[in-house]
């Protein structure tokens, strides 16, 4: 059984359906990404997992505990870093970690953790005076200091510069290597591709794709992108509607086609049939970015 199991989750705010019949499994030791555009229901989902929000329907269990009922057990098992970190402005970094440590039976050494997260030089600095990256790392430190079995990290690199972002990613890998399960909420595909063992893509409150990052890309109709310059002019629409072709774009002489592997073969056959060859041919797997945009767009069209 998964460490975190979400089944049929539903939560509405007034008339807005934030999450609808959402399932999520998080196995112990994995980094699982919850991806989706703003307003997709990611935060509502993890708030239900953390027990901060009680869903209207569905079940959530964390190692067998119901998060919004078994508060003590769940707060010991699960560390949470929220989007708004919620630390008092005048508390120093070290004091913030000590505070949470003292709430747990068997915590990490606060000073050692502060050093490990690179906050040693600013341990005595008040929260409000820390940089954005330092505040994020401090939030992660408070989520980890109780030595939880799992942590929820919500939009942890939002607002960070690329350098601070990469450092934070290293930190997440380090957390996983120490055996802590990670639920990573993000809308950054690069982040998901870099860190996650599995991802769940959420749009409009529903799961639109689930699997390893590679599986999610491969499962799309536009899993492959090919570009080339035809050596002979093609009649307009010669490539549209071929089996397995998702989109055709022209930029000057260059043609860009996305589609499945079958689509690639169909395009090559069509070129031969028109007496053309693909000059400068490049075939590449689509990125998670492209697969994600396609997923989110088709979800938006389905609900429109």
């Amino acid at each position: 059984m998964a460490l975190i199991e979400v089944r049929g989750l539903r939560k509405t705010y007034g008339r807005t359906v934030a999450v609808d019949s959402l399932d999520l499994d998080v196995d112990e030791g994995q980094v699982v990404g919850v991806l989706g555009p703003n307003g997709a229901g990611k935060t509502t989902t993890v708030e239900c997992v953390a027990g901060l929000t009680r869903p209207d329907a569905g079940t959530v269990t964390l190692a067998g505990h119901v998060p919004w009922r078994d508060r003590v057990a769940v707060t010991r098992l699960l560390g949470v870093q929220l989007q708004s970190s919620g630390l008092p402005a005048k508390l120093t970094a070290r004091e913030a970690v000590q505070l949470v440590a003292a709430c747990h039976d068997d915590p990490d050494d606060p000073d050692e953790l502060v050093d490990r997260l690179g906050l040693g030089p600013v341990a005595g600095t008040r929260y409000a005076k820390l940089s954005g990256g330092q505040q994020q790392r401090l939030a992660i430190a408070t989520a980890l200091v109780g030595r939880p079995r799992a942590v929820v990290l919500d939009e942890l690199t939002t607002g960070l510069d690329p350098e601070a972002r990469r450092q934070t990613w290293d930190l997440v890998r380090d957390v996983r290597d120490r055996g802590t399960t990670v639920v990573l909420v993000t809308h950054l595909m690069e982040e998901a591709q870099q860190l996650c063992d599995r991802i769940t893509v959420v749009a409009g409150g529903r799961v639109v794709a689930e699997g390893t990052p590679d599986e999610v890309v491969a499962g799309r109709s536009a899993a492959t992108t090919m570009t080339f310059v035809p050596t002979a002019a093609l009649p307009p629409g010669a490539l549209d509607g071929l089996p397995g072709v998702a989109s055709v774009r022209r930029a000057g002489d260059r043609v860009e086609v996305t589609g499945s592997d079958d689509g690639v073969r169909a395009v090559l056959r069509a070129l031969t049939a028109h007496g053309a060859e693909p000059a400068g041919l490049r075939v590449a797997a689509s990125t998670l970015d492209e697969a994600y945009l396609e997923l989110v767009r088709s979800a938006a069209e389905a609900t429109a």
Binding site: L52, T75, R76, L82, S84, G86, L87, P88, C103, G146
Partner: peptide, 17 residues
Amino acid sequence: TYREQRILRRTATTPAR
């Protein structure tokens, strides 16, 4: 201030109430 800055909410994610 604690409510506006979500300090009470963050506290609820720890064993403290």
